[in-house]
Design a protein around this nucleic acid. Sequence first.
DNA 1: GCCGTTTTCGGCCCGACTGTTTTCAGTCG
Length: 573
Amino acid sequence: MPVHNADIARTFEEIADLLEIGDANPFRVRAYRNAARVVGELQLDIAATLARGAELPKLPGIGEDLAGKMHEIASTGHCALLDRLRRKMPPAITELLRVPGLGPKRVKALYRELDVQTLEQLYRAAREGRIRKVHGFGEKTETNILQSVEERLSKARRFKLAVATQYADALADYLRRSRGVGNVVVAGSLRRMRETVGDIDILATAGASSDVMSRFVAYGEVKEILSHGDTRSSVVLKSGIQVDLRVVPQESYGAALHYFTGSKAHNIAIRRLAQQRGLKLNEYGVFDGKRRVAGGTEESVFAAVGLPYIEPELREEHGEIEAARAGRLPRLVELSDLKGDLHSHTRWTDGRHSVEEMALAAKARGLVYLAITDHSRRLTVAKGLDPDRLRKQIDEIAGIAVPGITLLKGIEVDILEDGTLDLPDSVLQELDVVVAAVHSRFDLSRERQTERILRALDHPLVSILAHPLGRLIDAREPYDVDMLKIIRKAASRGRFLELNAHPERLDLFDTHCRMAKDEGVLVSINSDAHAIHEFDNLKYGIGQARRGWLEKRDVLNARPLAELKRFSAFRGS
DNA sequence: GCCGTTTTCGGCCCGACTGTTTTCAGTCG
């Protein structure tokens, strides 16, 4: 059984939970939690690296002891410390920490006083009114626990970026109509453009006389008010998503926006920088003793700790602070940089609009070229094109002239199980762009899946590999491939990788964008639009690309058409 | 458990809200 990074991360997380319940030094607990995060986000396969006999790079917050434990877990699948902790404490007890409102102290008290070890026992104790009798607990706490368990810990649910954005924008608009309110902005993981978000964070600036907070809790979509204070409140909307609103005075806008945007790991790192300079940073500003020295804008906060402005999408404590200090921050690509879209569908297959309608919609969004890339014949459910129908479509496209936008003749051709393409070269070579994609046999082994895609990239007529991992967020895992090999093949053959902007896909991942950039492979940010409104999804692709540190020069379709045509992948080679 | 442009020891991000307790601990973000 190979040990994955996620297994090591989970082990560290469980150790942290058990240590915390066991009243260990909180900084020791934090060290394990930090290690779990670092390992979980690491691209490098730890067990495989160690198995090769190679050294692990020095990882932040991981010293001799934790590195040793990583070795131990990778080679044996076990960790002696965890085994020991599990013997001291019923291991199921850690699931109690997931109950909102229960932390290590209360879990320990419930275990000691009532021998509560599992969710079922917790539920029974609450139902029987035994919890309120424990010191430090009361009737209200007992009711809250009961309710949390009954809701089956729904907090774990995450929302796709595009879905959460709709709720957030509507609520922000509503709050902007409050009396005496200044800025209202969406912060948190939504502002960082994470693929999915756990909750919505909104920041408002207002004075004491504003009614923004009372309006917030009175919002028609609110199902439940979790907390309600002067400067901070939390609610759950009918859709099930939690929203936190924070209100600060105008002069604290920048500091609060930075604080409320996160990520948590980034914030902690920035606060440590402030501390090293003898400053204190909180959501109200940067302070030298009692004197406020910054905080009106985010720029001023960064400047106070000696850094240039860092874009929200980079704030994950993934090297952005070091890059900022060295003056090597990327100038991230922007939506307005896109000049074209190289993946779209029409009514010829499973799209909902005509070629001309799609062209007009793309042009309306400022694009100057659009590739029509309908499906190939194997995808029968989508009425995939055979050579005959594809030639008819090519003729149709040739006859359509929409001023201001150039239409490219293309195809999204299936990569068959053996790595060959679903259409003959004779018809493919009549096209401007060939987008190749896997739509079947997601279950192949890593070796065979990788070989299949490498072979497709070797095909002289393939331009772009579409949605390289095939994942559907929350619905289908990515297929198992060696992304580094694929990226290197693309580099050696002069091919391109797609970053599919559809909010269900967002495929490439951010980490692979960085990998592609490092290997010199341009990324094409494509909408995969099946209808005219879906060109709007390009903004989510841009968000993902920015999280992957991509600049304008790293993006294929940020280049003018004339430049694209000079690439061998667009001429066939 | 980690880490060092004050340190190899002694620090480790910071504030709001709730509920229970009578001045604050626990939890959360």
